[in-house]
Every structure is written in C-alpha cells, then in structure tokens.
C-alpha cells in the first residue's frame, strides 16, 4: 500500500513533481504511466526516501519510508539506474544487501534461483548483460519478501523473453496480494501487465483509473461497420450526430486493420465505414429500422497508446509542449 498526498518536488526552479496524490492498492499491478520526464522516477525515489519531497507526503503501509524499522520487509525496489556495484559478484551483492536486515544466506540462494542467475552468481556484475542486470535488480528487490514492489521501467532494454518473464512474475506477485507499482513510458507494456493506472504528465496527475476504464473512456473509440448500403447508413449515423469516415480511414487504425485490409481493398471501397460517437447498439438498431443489411459491426477500442495521447492532449500543461514530450524531455 502506497499513499501519496500532495507530493511535490522542485529542483531549483524546475518542478519535477507537482502536487501528486494517488493510492496504490494491494493485489494488482498498478501502472505508473507517463512520458519521459513526467516525474515517475522522481516520485519513486521519494517513495523510497531517497529524495526528500519539497512538499507533501508519501506513506508506505501507513508510515514514512524513513521510519520503517525493516524497509526490506515492506518495499522492494528496482530503480531505473542500476543500483549494483560493477566490481562485486551477484552473490556478494545480494549478501551485502541481505546482511542489513539479517536475512539468512538461504534466502539469497533462493532469490538467485528464482531469477535464474545460478550459473553466473559468482561472476562480477559489471560483465552482466542488461537482462542479467535487471534480473539481479529484481532479486535484490525480492530479498526481504516485501509486501510492496516499486519497479522503475523494469522491461527497459529487455529481450522478448525477459519482458515476458517479468510480466509473468509481476502478475504472480500481485496475485499473492502484494502491492506493485510499475512505471513505464510504454503504453503497450502497461496494457499487458497492469490493472490499475496512474497517469502523469509534467509531474502532475492526469488520471487515476484502471487500464480498462482508461481505454474505454478515450474518445478514439469507433465502430467498424460493413454493409452493402454503407453510404445510406453513414448518412443515418451522421444525422444522429456521429462522425463517419470511409474505409480509407482503416489505414489509420493500426495493426488490427492490416488483416482485413486486403479484403476491404478487394471489395467495394465504399462498403466499410468507421462510425465514431455512436455506440454499436444504436447503429444496429438504425440498420434494423431502415432495413439495412449488416455484414459486420465491430466496436474498436482505442489502444492504450491512443487513449494516452488523447488524454494528455487535453491536459493544459501538455498543449504547448506536446511535440517535445512525445520525444522525451530529459
């Protein structure tokens, strides 16, 4: 359980985190989503007591992190910058960390096995690949068997197998009742792993929601309709206040359109339309009322990415700086 209230961090004149309040609940993976420079890492460092908030508080299991008698029992952390001395072997690294809490050597061996580093446990961490380093970081985080895990960009630079491994691990840990806060700037990764969502931009909270609600609430939702009388239906839908585009718009719908794209191109160009602003139920009723045959009626949810772009465009602070933030500001 992590509770942030009015969390603010200023570096000189720059505001990195601005009046951020959120709650991370146990039992699910909570995604901490925002573009580069949105204040995710800073927030995580404040949770761990590494950075002192300029204002506001953040509590872990109801207490300030610095007041925890046994921090490793409450929180395990994987920070973006690898927190591993390159000259030390994986086992010695874990042992040194374990000693601070009187964690037995047996547990060190357990986490080594859990993350699959058994064969390189004696090797110096400086020679580790990115994936192995990330695994060692996760082993460190799990040492104290913590109730809360804070992970900053854990899949950054990992190969597909590593990404899948982390995703499965986190879901499993959450299912055991742990609190998991996972930051990423990759929306697709969030869609795969997270349930809850905290969206930030420019250090501010944009939305605290669930992945499902977040995508459903996005205005990019459309209904894909195929009908021999598409033009007629388009007119009816437009009269109901919907925005209708013809199948050419399919190209803009991303990968889902690719499979059907070939077929659509072969058939009549005008038999497929995209209806925005009208639920599929209403379109179906319209078609029945006016005796229009339907070949296909598919609601298309906006991807998390589209939802994110959509929502951040609305955030006041983002409007002016949108091109810069999408490239990364730091």
């Amino acid at each position: 359980m992590i509770e942030a209230r009015g969390l603010t961090k200023r570096y000189g004149g720059k505001v990195a985190v601005d009046d951020l309040s959120f709650t991370v609940r146990p039992g699910v993976v909570t995604g901490f989503l925002g573009p580069n420079g949105a204040g995710k890492s800073t927030t995580m460092r404040m949770i761990l007591g590494l950075d002192r908030p300029t204002r506001g508080t953040v509590l872990v299991d109801g207490r300030h992190y610095r007041d925890l008698a046994s921090p490793a029992r409450h929180v395990g952390a994987l920070l973006e910058s690898r927190a591993i001395h390159t000259g030390r072997s994986a086992r010695d690294h874990l042992l040194a960390l374990a000693h601070t809490h009187g964690i037995p050597r047996r547990r060190v061996e357990e986490v080594i096995d859990l993350v699959g580093l058994r064969e390189v446990a004696r090797k110096r961490a400086g020679g580790f690949s990115l994936g192995m380093g990330q695994r060692l970081g996760i082993a460190s985080a799990l040492l104290g068997d913590p109730g809360t895990l804070v992970l900053d960009e854990p899949v950054n630079g990992l190969d597909p197998e590593g990404v899948r491994w982390i995703r499965d691990l986190l879901r499993g840990l959450a299912a055991e009742g742990r609190t998991i806060l996972l930051s990423s700037h990759l929306m697709s990764e969030m869609a795969m792993t997270a349930t809850d969502l905290i969206v930030v931009g420019r250090g501010r909270l944009i939305q605290e929601t669930t992945v499902e609600e977040f995508t459903r609430g996005a205005s990019g939702n459309r209904v894909h309709v195929r009908s021999p009388q598409a033009a007629e239906l388009a007119e009816l839908a437009a009269r109901e206040g919907a925005t209708v585009t013809y199948s050419a718009a399919l190209a803009g719908m991303g990968s889902t359109a690719a499979a059907s794209g070939l077929e659509a191109a072969r058939g009549s160009e005008a038999d497929a339309i995209e209806v925005a602003g009208l639920p599929s139920e209403r379109i179906g009723e319209l078609a029945r009322t006016y005796g229009i045959a339907l070949y296909e009626l598919t609601p298309r949810l906006a991807s998390l990415e589209e939802a994110f772009m959509d929502i951040t465009r609305d955030a006041v602070e983002f409007t002016t700086a949108a091109p810069a933030t999408s490239e990364g500001t730091r």
Partner: peptide, 29 residues
C-alpha cells in the same frame, strides 16, 4: 523453497483507501 507470499504484516487502512478493499484484504489474508 521460495516463500511465495507477501509480508505477514497487516496493511494499515487497506479497507479505507483501496478501490476494491474487500478483494484486496481477502487475497492478502
């Protein structure tokens, strides 16, 4: 041999702040 469950400490105020407090508490228990 891996202990596969979270900290045995109770979560203070879990019921008050969680969106689905019932579920979360149940799972932890």
């Amino acid at each position: 041999s891996t202990p596969s469950t979270p900290s045995a400490r109770p979560v203070p105020a879990a019921a008050g702040t969680g969106r689905q407090p019932g579920t979360a508490t149940l799972e932890r228990g």
